[in-house]
Amino acid sequence: MTNILLVEELERSFDDLLAVAGVSFFVESGETYGLLGPNGAGKTTMISMIAGLLEADRGSIRVAGQPMATTSTAAKRAIGLVPQDIAIYPDLTAKENLAFFGSLYGMRGAALNARIETVLEIVGLRDRADDRSDQYSGGMKRRLNIAVGLLHEPQLLILDEPTVGVDPQSRNAILESVEALSTDGMSVLYTTHYMEEAERLCDRVGIIDNGLLVAEGSRRDLVDGIGQNDTVHVSGTGDLRSATEALRSAEGVVQAAEAHGVITVMVDRAAGRLPSILATCGEAGVSVTALDVSEPNLEAVFLHLTGKALRDET
């Protein structure tokens, strides 16, 4: 696979504040890469440099093989930016917004009109295409915001926290759109401080904190990297204490405890241990009524790596 984005030793300061401190990563063609970090971690500064809005103090960025800087029009053609804040002209219709931004990428005529129809269909705004965008709901504006980024079929779509302040229904629609784009082979750079979004959408995740990329990899790699176990919660009736004792000596079980009618079992890999856990409970005379498995998530990874919660405001 080729790298659609290559970031090397990127650094940027604002006065005495080191916002991005020597970050390196890459996004492969067709990959969805997530930058996960709390507010103020340096994500937006990094996106600003990658999108050619801000010059780096040090390091380099290449988009589709082209060096990116504020004056790099060739590299800018390869990206589509969906900023965190809605960035559309409120006094223009959806079509007029799209036509204007499309023209900046050299699109025109029938091809432009056809593409406008396509992206309006993708974001579900075709019926409201001729309405001024200041008459849209917040969710519709968000969708138009994304449509503008998609219009010129960029090689790399950059989504900077696209679901902040969005209602659950619109949020789900946005996530589905991104999943569809990923399935279609578009490369996506997705920043978020929502762990669930990163887990759901991203092939690989870079965890960023205080301007540093503290870890990188697939979700499973990151989870395995911190050495934490899966947790199985067993609810049931019968002799739970005996079942707990039996589970403590079962293979793969690290720890087992019973409280309030629920047995909590920590195992190295839950998926392969569930049959034996159920069998042990049955042998101890417990009738299992519910079973819940939770794997360590990126929240836990972030906590492990930085010592603070992902959603702490900084």
């Binding site: 050619g52 504020t70 004056t71 029009t73 800018k76 930016l81 809605i86 931004f101 900046l104 990428y105």
Partner: peptide, 15 residues
């Protein structure tokens, strides 16, 4: 203010 300036400059347009 409305955020379009950044989007404009992320297109193939110089300041």
């Amino acid at each position: 203010r409305v955020g379009t300036w950044g989007r404009l400059l992320s297109a193939p347009v110089t300041r």
